[in-house]
Amino acid sequence: MITPKSFWSPHRLLLAAIGSAIIISCAVFMRWDWIPDYYEIILAGIWRTIWLLVASVVLGFALALPIGLAQAAGPKPLAILARQFCNIIRGTPLLLQLWLLYYGLGSVFSTIPEIRGSAMWPYLRQAWPYALLCLTLSFAAYEGEVMRGAFLGVPKGELEAGRAFGFSEMQLFRKIWLPRAIQRALPTLGGEVVLQLKATPLVATITMIDAYGAFSKVRQDIFLTYEPLLLLALIYMMIAGLLVVLFRYLENRTPSS
């Protein structure tokens, strides 16, 4: 552990001085007077980013469990299907997938009268269902790969012990295999969620006003290049920092083997 005294050694003081000089000169010499006019849009954008992140991570993780399980222990056709799904999603850029779903699928939907007439149409005309679907599938593919390893990594002896105690297969899965696999996947899960956060700004390219989209609007309105981008970078850094702290807390809470 670093003690406070050794942390504030001379070179760190110098670095801190340079850092605060940069921050102060940013605050003084750059224009920040636009923030009061736009902070409502910005807050709404940040809220939308967090909402999209949480929803896609929860749904994606729920989808990743069967995908990982199918590859680890499923029948062969199912395993191949899950494997190919992961390969295709992981082998193409997220931006392309997003545009494929929004422009491609959207244009197909609009030519089918049954869909245009259905109750779902008002939702399917908006951007967020496509954004959520795309981010969910992407997270499921990357996390499915992690879960495959986690399921395979649970020591055989623990499963055998469960069987020896007379657990049914379902009980075995619910009480031993799944919790142990999730525990093994937790350290990588934190990293994956931060990666997912960094993928969310792409949804601004399909007209969804998330944090990035809100700042794009600011940049178009007031013709500033750097100030909005720097503030936006700071906001993403803070969210990423919070996520790291949260997952460290979760990791410390779960007993390690």
Binding site: R12, L14, L15, L197, L202, Y226, L229, A233, Y236, M237
Partner: peptide, 28 residues
């Protein structure tokens, strides 16, 4: 130590900010 800490700042900052924003920032 100075180079070490500067590099730590570089890797941490770049890995915490979305690539899209970095690309815009670096580009402009």
């Amino acid at each position: 130590a100075f180079v070490k800490d500067s590099l730590a700042c570089y890797t941490t900052l770049v890995r915490a900010v979305p690539e899209l924003i970095l690309i815009l920032l670096f580009y402009y």
